[in-house]
């Protein structure tokens, strides 16, 4: 933990920005560079920064949930996205798509299990990186 007013003040802004950017990266991932892994990395960077500025206990309070549990929930979500295909009689991990408001020449808003899988990956990466970093931060 570093005791610096500049870092402290900047962190408040940066954490929010990084988290928002991570969600943007997550959602953009389907057709463009980005996705769950990158999103999770960027999101966890935000909290790593917070941990450097405010210390590990404050970060745990800010996170509310334990990072290990977040990672495990993420694993569960990713698994669910794979298993979801069972309801449609498809093979394991077959992507299922729902096009909301689709018309003849517009695909509408595509919602898919691929996205759900990516959200799971996001949480796994986010949770496991924070687990490691917070453990290291508390040791030092």
């Amino acid at each position: 933990m570093m005791n610096s007013i500049i870092l402290n003040a900047a962190t408040r802004l940066l954490v929010a920005l990084l988290l928002m950017f991570s969600v943007y990266m997550l959602l953009r991932g389907h057709n463009l560079p980005g996705g769950g892994f990158i999103g999770g990395l960027i999101g966890s960077t935000g909290f790593v920064l917070y941990a450097i500025a405010q210390g590990a206990p404050a970060t745990r309070r800010a996170l509310r949930a334990e990072p290990q549990s977040l990672a495990m929930v993420g694993l569960g979500i990713a698994l669910f996205a794979g298993v979801f295909a069972v309801f449609f009689d498809d093979a394991f991990f077959t992507g299922q798509w729902l096009f909301i408001g689709a018309t003849e020449d517009d695909k509408g808003l595509p919602i898919s299990t691929v996205l759900v899988f990516d959200i799971g990956v996001y949480l796994v990466v986010f949770g496991s990186i924070l687990t490691l970093v917070l453990a290291l931060e508390e040791e030092v």
Binding site: Q68, S69, M72, V73, L75, G76, L79
Partner: peptide, 9 residues
């Protein structure tokens, strides 16, 4: 895998 998630929670 599913058991792992539940057992962890």
């Amino acid at each position: 895998f599913a058991t792992a998630v539940l057992a962890f929670l």
